[in-house]
Design a binder for these strands. Sequence first.
RNA 1: GCCCCCAUCGUCUAGAGGCCUAGGACGCCACCCUUUCAAGGUGGAGAUCAGGGGUUCGAAUCCCCUUGGGGGCACCA
Length: 508
Amino acid sequence: MGDGAVRAGGPVRTRFAPSPTGEVHIGNVVAVLISASIARKHGGQFFIRLEDTDRSRYQEGAEGLIYNALSWLGIEWDEGPDKGGPYGPYRQSERLDRYRAYTEQLLASGAAYRCWCTPERLDQMRKEQQARKVPPRYDRLCLGKSEAERRALPGFTDRYTVRVLMPTEGQFTFTDAIRGDITFDYATQQDHILVRSDGFPVYHLAAMVDDHDMRTTHIVRGEEWISTTPVHYQVFKAFGWDVPAIAHSPLLLNTDRTKISKRKHPWAKVEWFMEQGFLPEAVVNYLGNLVAFVPDPENPDPSIARELFGLEEIAKHIDLANIGPSGKIIDIPRLEWLNGQYIRRLSLREFSRRVAPFMRDVAGLDQGILSKALPLEQERLKRLSEAPEVLGFFFRDEQYDPKILIPKGLDGQKALEILQASRDAIEDLATEGPSWTAEAIKDALWPLAEALGVKTGQLFGAGTVRAAVTCRLVGPPLFETMEALGVDTVRRRLDAAIERLSLVESAR
RNA sequence: GCCCCCAUCGUCUAGAGGCCUAGGACGCCACCCUUUCAAGGUGGAGAUCAGGGGUUCGAAUCCCCUUGGGGGCACCA
């Protein structure tokens, strides 16, 4: 219910029809999520079709990026160029003969006509219309003329295009499955080009023909398509076909409410989210929040939302009529929060597997240390990409200002005293034998607080031992960290700290 | 300029005429827990439902206008 008019009989069929021009825009993922979820909700099919009729924009490898993005997100497709299906081929470049036949049909019925105008003439016409502040539209110079008749007039080329004949009067209304009725005056519409002069169809023809042939029941696409919907309906009408339900999904916006563009904004690409160490679960959950409301099953109050959910819940609760049509500002802090939630829920094994790609270039990486360090950092990460920076000190000594060795409320001399006492305790522990465990380290260091008359916070918090051992002020729990680092590194770093701090102190 | 879409806390969202002195989440603030940082727990600030008119006994919810934001105006999708 609420998902628009579904054609009688036949399964619900939705699709993702991207143009293979590069990376996948995150805004497309919203439409994909809606499409795939609607199909799943109704037990139908979701398929991929490549809109590759513009050879000049085609990019090698883009097809793989599309499959990769969907796979990463965990969205499965039933049919596509890669796996075939009953309505293939699923690449428009392989369907050219069909478009040709359909074009002939349109030409024969008079629903479309040839246009021999040069691009220059069209360009000039547009400029004049803009200057006169009237809606730019084709003046129909070629309508009803034979090639010979048209040739006699200026701005002629024999490489013709094909235009759809639009009504010129009255209004056009269609029901958007998300937004409701949308109305246009035909007077503001123009005869769009359906077939380019190189014989290739444009989206307006190819996509509609394919959606009919492939039995698409719901066309879900971005808001930027609203204004060309009258053309698309006209194409369906010209063939006498039923029109699928059409839904225009909300746009994703930057913080300043402008449209996210692949050129200017790195986060426009799905690939950016991968590189930044966002889990696909978090991305799906975040975007899912924009297209479906999932109530908390634990809570009797239906207005309380469930925060963590996946594809299954989205499919269960999605309803086109209830999708908010307004543009959505992308809220990275919320995504990060979700990401943290999912990172913490990963098994250690899975967590290790997922951070591994981010750790590749870490200098001095040691698998033994890493396996001990990872569990300490898992609950602290918002993005997997933070791992190399946050774990860096485990694998190499880092430069730091000796001032960080002095904790709040104490002076350099006291800090030196603490470090020396800790160093001695560590030495004792090391000579005792094979007891280098967090527990043993704690037992050895803990009594020092009382003995030295300082708080445990001053001893193990920001400063002294922590700073010496990790070269930083913040990090995971100290004793576990020391265990992971190993006794040699701890000794070496304590020695270095003592030496440096003494130098500073004696210089005063 | 023309056409179209949109409008509830900073952000996402619940709300389909009375249950709303508007609920939740992120973020923010405070406190608790605590060896730092997180995580977790508790509490708080934060929205005269963009503004103005209607309709109605009653409007965040319906209608109109204004304002603001966005999208489109290609032989790209």
